[in-house]
Amino acid sequence: MNLVTISGPPSSGKTSVILKTIDSLKARGLKVGVAKFDCLYTDDDKLYEKAGIPVQKGLSGALCPDHYFVSNIEEVTQWGLKEGLDVLISESAGLCNRCSPYIKDIKAVCVIDNLSGINTPKKIGPMLKSADIVVITKGDIVSQAEREVFASRVNMVNPSAVIMNINGLTGQGSYELSTLLHDGEDDLKTLVGKKLRFSMPSALCSYCLGETRIGESYQMGNVRKMNLPSGLDAEKRQGSQ
């Protein structure tokens, strides 16, 4: 089985791109399944079901979505193997722009859209910078010049990636993507022992553990303060009240 991890900001067009790409993979006689990871809500699983694609969904709820992803991806892989899939695609939204669920030696695809603004490539961390393939969507609604500027900005932060324009509505470009996702030589049996390409942001503060009150005396663990002009620190403010 081949595993492909696809991620990208919310509403960038991941599901549309995946659905169209699976059409092309299926046309080649490959069996494809999807594991959809999201935060609070998704009904994309119904879209996959409707297209006759085996799907599992996981909602991270109160947990960090990418940490949740790593904690579950091996089990999902085993599910894919049991289903007899040739290609298993994991879909997850990069919510804090710092995280990246990519795994070493596992194909990583990042989906971003032309409408997100030309400074976006600069703002997204490893999710964009360490992807093997960057798919840019929604090119049909912006000008050629904007597409070129956007692609060149992506290229600047990730020169080694294959950059592809895909139209999620018509599927233009999805056939080409499909040819890059399946390698007959690849035969993944387990992810145990493999490593993430990037460490995820560390955090463990009182708010991670359910604290809701605001104020310095309630903050414990990994807490960091912004650099604000002097005279604004908490103690002084409290003193002047």
Binding site: N114, G117, D140, I141, V142, S143, Q144, E146
Partner: peptide, 8 residues
């Protein structure tokens, strides 16, 4: 194409 816009 016909229906393209500038968005910047």
């Amino acid at each position: 194409s016909q229906n393209m816009n500038f968005v910047m």
